[in-house]
Design a binder for these strands. Structure first.
Length: 450
RNA sequence: GUGAGCGUAGCUCAGUUGGCAGAGCACCGGGUUGUGGUCCCGGGAGUCGCGGGUUCAAAUCCCGUCGCUCACCCCA
């Protein structure tokens, strides 16, 4: 019987959004959208389908295994977009000369990844992207963090729920260098630091030794990165020959922290050099937000990527931004019972047609005229398709939570009136059909407010 | 691609020395023919994931298979 549902379920890692589910997703995306606008960002979008090469050029061929790729009839290799940055880079590069800078753009695309789903990771998901392009100001770095914090607060999360861990790759690199990691080995070190908390200790030590040799002890590095504030860097770097080279980086990072302070979100942030991000293209400040108990994966991640745009557009363009996916965030919000729904609001008015006495004409036509007039006037109105017992229809109206019920029945036939009932107060009065049709907003408003 | 756990009604699940498949929620109907969410009564619904084996008898035991979940790989 229900064989389709059984034999053709949703594709693994994708989700059916029933109205009550979609209402939660809408709440989330509209909060993202409103937050973006408050902070001066404009929305853009690009195609869901892109040339495969757009992704392989930056990341190499191995990424093909991790995305959905297909071939069109002309033999072109295409991919469902697994990330937004290449599309953004192309669009910006196309109009680089004419766009006023800086650019503050956001988007809320659906994205796809061809991997096995697991907790907080799906094959189709929604990700909010915030990017500021064309400025290397430390204020822009801090502003991205401000936007992220503001959105999470708008969703109901507090300083007890999450923290943004702020770091800078160049500072981490300086510490690694001071501890003896060669510059060639730094990318591999970043990669392992990014995985450090997910890998078992022995596996981590094995890979560390494999990539970096045994001369530099991982535990030593890990401890050094736990320093509580940037000032401690000087002590850590005192032995290093080129400690002075770090000063400009440190000064800029301090400026970012100062801007965070000015924005009033210091209590939501945490200095944490153990955050480096897995991607190779970050060039400076990087940050990730986590729930405080660290029960879930990272809620968001981002940072400065000053060299990436040049790879696509030819001309360099400094940039900073972050991405925040819906999967982990919705799990966190659900665990705090903070999820809300928008778009499921009940209609303001429910029109009930009472069964007519024998010999009296039905009032279906009047019901339909009232419905259409109310809706034209901007008042959401509903009615059943069949005439049922009034008690039954009242039950439906009450369950849906409508504000007003309009009764259409024999009095409508005999006296030209309907009864308008305010469901909250219980107050009910007769209103001429003509008056209702002439001024629906006045009647409904007058019956007890919208 | 690797490893572990789990598959019984739409949902959450119960169902052990193998013996006729159940509960709650949800849904639908009714509670004396024109006004409320509670409450009462009733109803539909499942090839117990699928296939094979053992047995007089399998949701239950054995083998296989598919699916889901979680972890790993990867993390944009």
């Amino acid at each position: 019987m229900a064989t389709v549902a059984q034999s053709i379920p949703p594709v693994k890692g994708t989700r059916d959004f029933f109205p009550e589910d979609f209402a939660i997703l809408r709440w989330l995306t509209e909060t993202w959208r409103n937050t973006s606008r408050r902070h001066g960002f404009v929305e853009f979008d690009g195609p869901t389908l892109e040339h495969l090469e757009l992704y392989t050029r930056k990341s190499g061929d191995e990424i093909v295994e991790q995305l959905f790729h297909l071939t069109d009839r002309g033999g072109r290799d295409l991919a469902l977009r697994p990330e937004m940055t290449p599309t953004l880079a192309r669009m910006v590069a196309a109009r680089l000369g004419s766009l006023p800078r800086p650019l503050k753009w956001f988007c809320i695309p659906r994205m796809f990844r061809g991997e096995r789903p697991q907790r907080g990771r799906l094959r189709e998901f929604v990700q909010w992207n915030i990017d500021i392009l064309g400025t290397d100001s430390p204020t822009a770095d801090a502003e991205c963090i401000l936007v992220a914090v503001d959105a999470l607060r708008a969703l109901g999360l507090t300083r007890d729920d999450f923290a943004v861990h702020v770091s800078d790759r160049r500072l981490v690199a300086a510490i690694l260098a001071a501890l003896g990691v060669t510059s060639e080995a730094i990318p591999a070190a970043f990669d392992l630091l990014d995985k450090a908390e997910r890998l078992p200790g022995d596996e981590l030590a094995r890979r560390w030794g494999e990539s970096l040799g045994t001369r530099v002890d991982f535990a030593r590095v890990w401890d050094a990165l736990a320093m509580p504030d940037p000032a401690a860097l000087r002590g850590e770097l005192s032995k290093s020959a080129d400690a002075a080279a770090v000063d400009p980086v440190l000064a800029r990072f301090t400026a970012v922290l100062g801007a965070i302070q000015d924005f009033g979100i210091t209590e939501f942030c945490k200095f944490d050099l153990r955050v480096v991000r897995g991607l190779a293209y970050y060039t400076g400040v990087v940050f990730e937000a986590y729930d405080r108990p660290r029960e879930f994966r990272a809620i968001l991640g981002g940072g400065r990527y000053d060299d990436l745009l040049a790879m696509f557009g030819g001309k360099p363009l400094p940039a900073v931004g972050f991405g925040m996916g819906d999967a982990v965030l919705l799990e966190l919000l659900a665990s705090r019972q903070l999820t809300r729904a928008v778009g499921l609001e009940p209609p303001e008015v429910f029109v009930i047609e009472a069964p007519a006495e024998t010999g009296v004409a039905g009032q279906g036509g009047t019901v339909r005229r009232i419905l259409a007039t109310l809706r034209r006037a901007g008042i959401a109105a509903e009615a059943g398709y069949e005439v049922q017992a009034v008690a039954k229809q009242m039950k439906r109206a009450a369950e849906r939570g409508v504000g007003h019920v309009i009764f259409v029945g024999d009095e409508t036939h005999s006296r030209g009136v309907v009864a308008v009932k305010n469901m909250k107060s219980g107050e009910q009065r007769d209103v001429a059909v003509d008056a209702l049709l002439a001024d629906p907003a006045g009647v409904i408003g007058g019956a007890g407010g919208v």
